[in-house]
């Protein structure tokens, strides 16, 4: 399954921090650096959402980043895939009760749906912070789903 998912084409990811504490972000970087080296699997970090297959979304989506997050996700080509990384992005984390954020990707998705921005596949990588290995697992699962799903 792994080779099937990964050998077909490489996956370009865009990193979208929506108010995370940096914990998951440094774990994403960790996955890119020699010890985990995800480039061996063809996963590459790109600078623009327009080039990206998968958006790595971290953080609970604070109200100040919201317009920019919506803009970045809208700029992604279809089929759009989002990997929600960390406890904040999956369920609001320790902040979920607080006021200046949406409380995770599920609520953002509802908002995006109401704006007509479709997210085709979503993956969730819980953990605080999510380990680099879990992030690799997440991308693989997401891509398997994306390739296998109706397109």
């Amino acid at each position: 399954m792994l080779s099937m998912a990964l050998s077909r084409r490489s996956i370009w990811v865009f990193h979208l921090n929506t108010g995370s504490c940096n914990g998951c972000d440094i774990e994403i970087l960790d996955a890119l650096t020699p010890v985990h080296d995800v480039e061996r699997l063809g996963i590459k970090l790109v600078a623009s959402p327009r080039h990206a297959d998968v958006a790595l979304l971290t953080g609970p989506v604070t109200v100040k980043t919201l317009p920019m997050v919506v803009r970045a996700l809208r700029a992604m080509p279809r089929p759009r895939a989002v990997l929600a990384i960390g406890a904040c992005a999956c369920g609001g984390g320790i902040w979920h009760y607080s006021y200046p954020h949406l409380g995770g990707f599920e609520n953002l998705r509802k908002l995006l749906d109401s704006m007509g921005i479709v997210i085709d596949v979503v993956g969730y990588v819980p953990g605080c912070p999510a380990r680099p290995e879990a992030i690799i697992d997440g991308i693989i699962k997401l891509v398997t789903r994306k390739e296998g799903g109706s397109r």
Partner: peptide, 12 residues
């Protein structure tokens, strides 16, 4: 275990 990764929200 660190792997609770899923594409289905309900699995969490």
């Amino acid at each position: 275990s660190f792997d609770r990764t899923t594409t289905n929200f309900e699995d969490l």
